[in-house]
Simulated assay, not measured.
Amino acid sequence: MKERLSKTVQSLQPSGIRRFFDLAASMDNVISLGVGEPDFVTSWSVREASILSLERGYTSYTANAGLLELRQELMNYMKKQFGVSYDYQNEILVTVGGSQALDVAMRAIINPGDEIIVVEPNFVSYSPLITLAGGVPVPVETTADTEFKLQPEQIEAVITKQTKALLLCSPNNPTGSSLTKAELEAIADIVIKYDLLVITDEIYAELTYDEPFTSIASIGAMRDRTIIVSGFSKGFAMTGWRLGYICAPVDLLQAMLKIHQYTMMCAPTMAQYGAIEALKNGSHDVEEMRKSYRRRRNYMVKSLNEIQLSCHTPGGAFYVFPSIKKTGLTSEQFAEQLLLEERVAVVPGSVFGLGGEGHVRCSYASSMESLEEAIKRIGRFMQNKL
């Protein structure tokens, strides 16, 4: 049967994250710093709005692009929060999570052989989605020396006649690195010079800690060449709701809408009603989560450095990406031994692409009590390895 499968699908490697989650799930007394998911429950008012929509019988399909009211709220939110204006009728699409948004964005712009520049380390689905769409991922490695921030000259060095777009994620998963406005302006200059598109994954936009988030779409003429992909999973603690969205110029958006129509129809109706409430009245809860994550980030960075795991201070998301090079172990060896010996689950940096080896990803979306115990165990592990 294997010979009947798509050669493209056969060429893809399974997610490197999943193996460690499955192993951790089979063990007792494990503290998981691996899951990229908020430890907060979705706000009650959001849950209540969704329940109310069911009680009122709102269980049919919505418009393919999403509820009109939700798209209006997204238009208002993008303008108020990030200074970017979109037409809610033609330039906003509600999707089944940020993952589907990335998928339709890739498929809408890629012709066979088109090259998409991807900044690594990055989320594990980026390159596979490009490949599935018929494109060629072109990785650019970032390192701890620059706090894993993309440098403009790195983009220019890999541009060819086949280059179609640059894929960005800021704040970044797995490093937590967050690009400043000035850094994005320098990147925008290169993008415009070579007439590229940008797909920007802004799923962590609400979770920045040291300075306000800047969308590259808000810079100069970038709006008309940028596809914003985002969602409610991280900032609004709505991972299981599977609700994302895309903001893009009308021609790009309408192309993505066609793919969405044929493959998904629409996002879940009750989730859309919950999202309307989140955008209208969820800012207080988002801010409380952000403050809590900031405290945890500061604790993790300080504590990891104290136990000789060198770690930069990430500007956003809820991950730290410490170096484990002092141990002499590969990132996979480190993660597996730490799990087996001390019952702490982290993700090896190697699964996130170039620049990831020699590091592990630790999520601080856990209680302070769990983080403190995890640090105690990791510290004991380090004493045995150094």
Rank of each mutant, 00 (worst) to 15 (best):
V96Y: 07
Q154F: 08
D103K: 02
R107T: 00
V140R: 01
I159N: 03
D87F: 11
G98L: 00
I92V: 11
E91Q: 10
G83C: 08
V94M: 04
K164R: 13
L132G: 01
P128C: 02
P137S: 03
T143F: 08
I110V: 11
P112V: 01
I190Y: 08
T163Q: 03
A108Y: 02
G83R: 09
R107Y: 01
P112Y: 09
D103L: 03
Y77S: 10
Q89A: 12
N111S: 07
I190V: 15
T180R: 14
G113I: 01
A144M: 13
E141W: 00
I110C: 06
A157H: 06
V84A: 13
K161E: 14
G98P: 05
A144I: 13
L179N: 11
P171L: 01
L184C: 05
P171H: 10
D87G: 14
Y126F: 14
E185G: 06
L93H: 09
Q162M: 02
K193G: 04
V119C: 11
P121H: 09
V191T: 05
Q154M: 12
M106P: 02
K193N: 08
S170K: 12
E147K: 15
V124E: 12
Q162I: 00
G134Y: 06
V124K: 03
Y86M: 06
I192M: 11
Y88E: 10
D189R: 14
P139R: 08
D189F: 01
V94K: 07
A182G: 02
C169L: 12
I155D: 10
T143L: 09
L102D: 04
Y126D: 03
E91W: 03
G83W: 12
L102N: 10
P128S: 04
V84Y: 09
A182M: 07
A182S: 13
L167G: 00
P112N: 05
L179T: 05
S99M: 09
T146H: 13
A101I: 03
